[in-house]
Amino acid sequence: MTRPIRLGTRRSALATAQSSQIARALEQQAGRPVELVPIVSEGDTSRASLSQLGGTGVFATRLREALLRDECDLLVHSLKDLPTADAPGLVIAATPARADARDVVLTRDGVRLGDLAPGARIGTGSPRRIAQVRRANAGVELHDIRGNVDSRMQRVRDGELDAIVLAAAGLSRLGADIDLALEPQDLSGWPTAAGQGALAVETRSDIDEDLFAAIRALDDPATRFAVTVERAILAGVEAGCHAPLGIHAVLRGEQLSVTAVAYGREPGEEIAVEHAEAVAQEYIRPEGGSDGADSARRVVPRRASEIGTAVAGRLLDRGASDLVSPSTTP
């Protein structure tokens, strides 16, 4: 009997939905069953805010430990939650086609964020979203919020909060029954977290060739290129994934467009960089490394990393590090 492929996943409804989506696609590619292996991370058990927990990697560490100990064969992460540094012995083998990267504001009655009355209570624990909400409406009150999507929405239904900010991709993947009014935020004026809307399928760098090839078949080159640009910007500014930094890149055909904004505490205190260029097709396909077995499977499009590093340099030249350092995080 063929042994099932073991896919490690957090227990949350969203993580399970994302993992199940990848499991179905991988079963078709590999011709083998895929079973989910639930794993509990610190981010799942602690009620502290993500910024207090350290943000970067809080959901990934325990899962990666399980993967390295051969408790599972692969993981599915929300890419925005992953540290930008390589994890020794592991490789992101696929980034499937990206879902909607936008944030959405949810309210009971459809009042737009900018029109909410002074003192309206907005729920979000993200320093970036806090900064963006303040720019849209300086009179509202910000409240830190944790919990799953349903519990967050219930706090709006119950009147405890007047609005919350969530990722559109998570709502879509959950197939949530949404009885609240949604106001999507335009990415040009409200760029989101690096990698938001994208999934990362991670495995060991020494995984067998057949399984690696099946996972690689799930990769979308345009998504891979865009999120590599975004993560290179994040790494170049040396900001964690929960820093007040909005980044969005999109590749349509060969045309790349990038928006990156570092936010300070006060409305108007921000540094923005826009970048656009045509990218030849030969640079879009990922390239393996040449310095050992591990790097041979680090299928990262080199040109994307170069672009992201250059954009990060422009942000730093304009003083972005002063805005995204921990001492200035909203």
Rank of each mutant, 00 (worst) to 15 (best):
H143A: 00
T56M: 06
R128G: 04
D73C: 03
A97Q: 15
A176K: 08
L113Q: 12
V111Q: 10
R98K: 15
D86C: 11
G123H: 07
T84V: 12
H77L: 02
R121S: 01
L74T: 10
R152V: 03
T192S: 15
S78N: 12
D100E: 13
R173F: 10
T95Y: 12
S78D: 13
S172C: 07
G110Y: 10
L68Q: 08
P83Y: 04
L90A: 12
A101D: 08
R98N: 13
D158W: 05
G170P: 05
A138Y: 06
G119A: 02
L82Y: 12
A99K: 12
W190P: 07
G55N: 01
V140N: 01
L75I: 05
N148R: 03
R152F: 03
G170A: 06
A136V: 11
L187R: 08
A176F: 12
D86E: 14
G119V: 04
I92R: 10
V111R: 11
G114N: 06
R152A: 00
D115E: 15
T192I: 10
R112W: 10
L82F: 11
G170Q: 05
P83T: 05
D109M: 11
I130A: 00
A97G: 09
S172I: 13
A87I: 10
V149T: 15
L75Q: 04
A136W: 09
R121Y: 01
G175I: 03
A167D: 14
L166T: 04
A136S: 14
G170N: 07
N148T: 02
R121A: 00
E183G: 08
V91H: 09
R98V: 15
A169T: 07
L187F: 13
Q185H: 09
D81M: 00
D177P: 08
A120N: 05
N148G: 05
L90I: 07
G159Q: 03
L182V: 13
G139A: 03
Q185I: 12
R98Y: 14
L180T: 06
R157F: 06
V91Y: 10
I164H: 00
A176P: 08
S78F: 07
P96C: 06
T56R: 06
E141M: 02
L174G: 13
R108Y: 04
V165G: 00
G147S: 02
G170W: 02
R157E: 10
D70S: 14
G54Y: 04
V156G: 03
Q185M: 15
E65G: 15
D150Q: 13
H143D: 00
I178L: 15
P191K: 12
G175Y: 03
T95V: 15
